[in-house]
Amino acid sequence: MEIFAKLGIDWHSIIVYVVNFGLLAVILAYFFTGPVLKMLDERRKTITDNLAQAEKIKNEFLAEKKNADEEKEKLRADMESQMSDLQKEMEIRRKEQEESLELKKTRMIEEVRSIVDEEKRGILKSAEKQTIELIEKVVLHVVSNNIPQDVVKNSVADAWKTYKS
């Protein structure tokens, strides 16, 4: 006990201290702890509620986002599909047009060729006719003038040779 006395520890003080502390604890417990606890509970509850709400909102948001993503994906797929269809159709139309142009080109070339051939034939025919007319004129001119008897005689001999051969 002297040790405790040397240390300054007084059992009467300690008891007073303990009673004091006890009294304080009771008062605090009665007046503060309850409300504080209540407040803390309320706060906890509020926080929990908020958290739950936030979680809910977050989930809703996520769900919405997922829907939106799905919608977006669907739209994107749609669009891609439409683009692909459009491209195919464009390709088909392009080919059709090319074929049509090619056909037109071929027909035009054929028409031009036939016109050219027709013109050529006409020119040849005309040249042929003129040549024959000229030959006829020359021959008639030759035979209408006096042909030397030697020439006629030779013609008989030549014609005979041709016939014999």
């Binding site: 006719k129 024959i132 007319e133 006829e136 035979v143 014609a159 016939y163």
Partner: peptide, 14 residues
């Protein structure tokens, strides 16, 4: 094989 027939042939050709 006469010349006359040849002239006639030219006429016909014309």
């Amino acid at each position: 094989r006469s010349w006359f027939s040849r002239i006639q042939a030219i006429h016909r050709l014309k």
